[in-house]
Design a protein around this nucleic acid. Structure first.
Length: 423
RNA sequence: GGGGAGAUACUCAAGUGGUUAACGAGAGCAGACUGUAAAUCUGUUGGUUUAUACCUUCGCAGGUUCGAAUCCUGCUCUCCCCA
């Protein structure tokens, strides 16, 4: 059995763990992490605990992923300052199915692979309230429960905390208890906000079964400015679902991380060996302008999540969009699918013959920018390019501006692109 | 129940009758420099017009005034102290 905890430590993936955890890595163990179906897609923050599962799997252990079909009905209060809105059953079910099919795409899910997928609704749905209160609630004191940081915070907060959310930690604790009892699952992995919930499970196992279980949390991945990773500048998540975050955008996100971040993320998000990573970091420091690390991370993760084809397309699109001159644009041979994932507007050719202004394209017709003033401001600061040429006024575009008779490329600042396609 | 303080743009926070679309800071956006990096510097951040004009905005609703974020009245909400 390959030792794994040193590996995880080296990668910086361990934020906190319960004492004695190093004793378990010698034998094959079962471990799990939970995913909340609060949305119909995972985002890149979810990949960290998942990648730990994969490290364990590669070392020969037995990983489980628990989808929180039951716990999502309650809503995890960890890390939240206010009561959550309850989610609708149908939405949760839809989310569960979406997340499941997503996981099948990029993980070796049982029966073909080694990672088993379970839904905690399956074992929680049949528990009666009385049974739960007598058999589980009796083992955990209120004193223990209100000592949790997030509970304290909420108790001091005038909005308070509902009984429903207060019980959440017991339900998640019960999951761990159940998995320990039925599958001999010894370890739970979670984000740093999950510490309290994990500990409750361990406590329950200790009190009720005199068993010893372990927990491990991953660091909260932050960007240099302290913001949570997975959010872009505008605060939107980087999703794994290509409909929410196109492979092109996904690829660009990784390509744009800073040097500092890149040295960390290559350890978090790729499965390259320690040797390979150290070599890459050395090379990168020698000539950082080549951005070897960013490119490597972007390629590894994009291929992993979206597949080789989508990755190649994203690279191709990037090369064309970021090329300095107009000739590159002419090379695409009318294959506009290269622009999938780039914001665009489709218009009739007749419409374009009459002429259409930049402001209309970006605001009136597409809402790509929020106001006309914003466009004028950008034009004045020379931030808008049409087909790679800076414009100085609110230009009126016509069919003469079309490339290959098919499209016009508008570039806003260095990294934002907008395509007008004629149909 | 009694007393006190407050509510200003994305956030914090000045301004207490007249160049006030509102100081400043953070944040965002853009430009320069670079490597589609970081740091730095510069500009910018209500809307319409791409021009210099108008409209809307300082908790909500009224009022006083030539003129209000600023004064008055009522209301709503938040915080603090004493019961």
């Amino acid at each position: 059995m390959k030792k794994i905890l040193n590996e995880l430590t080296w990668r910086g993936l361990i934020q906190n763990c319960t004492p004695g955890i190093f004793s378990i890595e010698n034998n094959k163990i079962t471990l799990y992490t939970g995913l909340d179906p609060t949305s119909d897609s995972l985002h890149i923050g979810n990949l960290i605990p998942i990648s730990i599962l994969i490290h364990f799997k590669n070392a020969g252990h037995n990983p489980l992923i628990i989808i929180g079909g039951a716990t999502a009905l309650i809503g995890d209060p960890s890390d939240k300052n206010t009561e959550r809105q309850l989610l609708d059953n149908n939405i949760i079910e839809y989310n569960i199915n979406s997340i499941k099919s997503q996981l099948y795409n990029f993980l070796d899910i049982y029966p073909n692979g080694r990672i088993k997928l379970l839904n905690n609704y399956d074992w929680i749905k049949n528990i009666s309230f009385l049974n739960f209160v007598r058999n589980i609630g009796k083992y955990i004191t209120i004193n223990y429960m209100i000592a949790k940081d997030y509970v304290k915070k909420r108790l001091n907060n005038c909005n308070g905390m509902s009984f429903t959310e207060f019980t959440y930690q017991l339900i998640q604790g019960y999951d761990f208890f159940y998995l320990y009892k039925t599958k001999n699952c010894l370890l739970q992995i979670g984000g740093s906000d999950q510490w309290g919930n994990i500990i409750t499970g361990i406590e329950l196992i200790k009190k009720k079964l005199s068993g010893i279980a372990y927990g491990l949390t991953v660091p909260l991945i932050t960007k240099n400015d302290g913001s949570k990773l997975g959010k872009t500048q505008k605060g939107t998540n980087i999703w794994l679902n290509p409909k929410r975050t196109s492979p092109y955008k996904f690829y660009q996100f990784w390509l744009n991380i800073s040097d500092n971040e890149a040295e960390k993320f290559i350890k978090y998000y790729t499965f390259l060996s320690k040797f390979e990573i150290e070599q890459l970091i050395i090379k990168h420091r020698q000539s950082p302008n080549k951005r070897l690390l960013q490119k490597k991370i972007a390629s590894e993760i994009t291929k992993w999540i979206h597949g080789n084809k989508a990755y190649e397309k994203a690279v191709n699109t990037s090369e064309i969009l970021f090329s300095k001159n107009i000739d590159e644009l002419k090379k695409i041979n009318k294959d506009l699918s290269i622009f999938n994932g780039v914001p665009h507007l489709e218009i009739n050719k007749e419409f374009l013959e009459k002429g259409i202004t930049i402001v209309d394209v970006l605001v009136t017709l597409s809402n790509f920018l929020s106001s006309k003033n914003a466009v004028y401001r950008l034009i004045h600061s020379k931030a808008i390019l049409v087909n790679k040429t800076i414009i100085y006024e609110n230009l009126c575009l016509t069919t003469h501006d079309l490339i290959d008779e098919r499209f016009i490329l508008i570039q806003i600042s260095k990294k934002k692109f907008f395509v007008i396609k004629v149909i």
